[in-house]
Computed example of a mutant assay.
Amino acid sequence: MRIGEPAAQAGMTRDTIRFYEKVGLVAGRRPANGYRGFPPETVAWLHHVRTARTLGFPPAEIARHGEKPNDAPDAAEALSALLEEKVQVADARMAELTARVGTGCPLRATGQAGRS
C-alpha cells in the first residue's frame, strides 16, 4: 500500500505516518519507483499507535512495547498492563502534588523567587 491508503484507513495524515516512520514506529519500503510502501498490517498498528497516543503514551514508550506492526498488543490483557503502568505513574504524580498542597511556592521557600 502506498502511504495514502494506510493514512486514510487509520484516520491520520500522511505527515503523521512520515513522522512515525522517522521515529521508528512504522517502517515503509521504497521499491524502485521511489514511493513508500506499507504492508496491510500497518493499518492495525497505526490504530494501536493512535489509541496509545490518545491515552498519553509518547512515541518512545509505544516503541518500547512493540516496534513492529505484528507486535501490537491485541489482547485485552496486554493493553490492561500498559494502562496499569500509566495509572501507577499518574498516581505517583498525584501523591507528590497532594503532598505539596498548602506548602506555598517552592521557589519562595528556597529564596529563589524573583530571580532570573
Results as ranks from 00 to 15, higher is better:
Gly11Pro: 15
Pro58Ala: 14
Val101Glu: 09
Met1Phe: 10
Ala32Ile: 08
Ala81Arg: 05
Ala99Cys: 08
Leu46Val: 12
Ala99Phe: 09
Ala113Cys: 15
Gln9Ala: 15
Arg100Thr: 09
Ile3His: 02
Val87Phe: 06
Arg14Ala: 09
Arg36His: 01
Ala92Thr: 10
His65Asp: 06
Gly37Pro: 00
Val26Ser: 02
Gly11Arg: 01
Leu107Glu: 12
Ala72Gly: 05
Pro6Phe: 08
Arg30Gly: 07
Met12His: 03
Val87Gly: 01
Ala109Lys: 05
Leu79Lys: 03
Tyr20Glu: 06
Ala78Gly: 15
Ala92Gln: 08
Gly28Ser: 15
Gly111Ile: 12
Tyr20Phe: 14
Gly37Ile: 10
Ser116Ile: 14
Trp45Ile: 10
Gly4Met: 06
Ala75Ser: 15
Arg18Glu: 00
Met1Lys: 01
Val87Met: 06
Glu5Gln: 11
Pro73Lys: 04
Pro58Gly: 11
Lys86Leu: 08
Arg2Thr: 14
His65Leu: 13
Tyr35Asn: 03
Gly24Ser: 02
Gly104Asp: 11
Glu84Thr: 15
Ala99Lys: 09
Glu41Ala: 12
Ala95Pro: 04
Tyr20His: 06
Phe57Lys: 01
Leu107Ser: 05
Lys22Glu: 15
Ala78Gln: 15
Arg30Lys: 11
Val89Tyr: 04
Arg14His: 03
Arg53Ser: 15
Arg115Tyr: 10
Arg108Lys: 09
Gly56Asn: 04
Ala113Lys: 04
Gly4Asp: 08
Ala81Glu: 14
Phe38Glu: 03
Arg36Gly: 04
Glu5Cys: 05
Ala109Cys: 06
Lys86Tyr: 07
Cys105Asp: 15
Ala81Lys: 04
Met12Cys: 07
Gln9Cys: 11
Asn70Gly: 14
Ala27Val: 13
Glu85Cys: 08
Val89Phe: 06
Arg50Gly: 08
Leu79Glu: 06
Asp15Val: 01
Leu82Glu: 08
Lys86Pro: 09
Thr110Asn: 10
Gln88Ala: 15
His47Pro: 08
Leu79Asp: 06
Lys22Gly: 07
Arg14Lys: 07
Ala52Gln: 03
Thr103Ser: 13
Ala109Ser: 11
Tyr20Lys: 03
Asp71Ser: 12
Pro58Cys: 11
Cys105Thr: 03
Ile62Ala: 01
Ala92Arg: 05
Asp91Thr: 08
Gly28Asn: 02
Asp15Trp: 00
Leu46Ser: 05
Leu46Tyr: 03
Gly114Val: 11
His47Arg: 14
Pro69Val: 09
Ala78Met: 09
Val43Ala: 00
Ala72Cys: 07
His65Ala: 10
Met1Arg: 02
Val49Phe: 04
Gly4Phe: 04
Leu107Ala: 13
Phe19Glu: 01
Met12Glu: 01
Thr103Gln: 14
Gly4His: 01
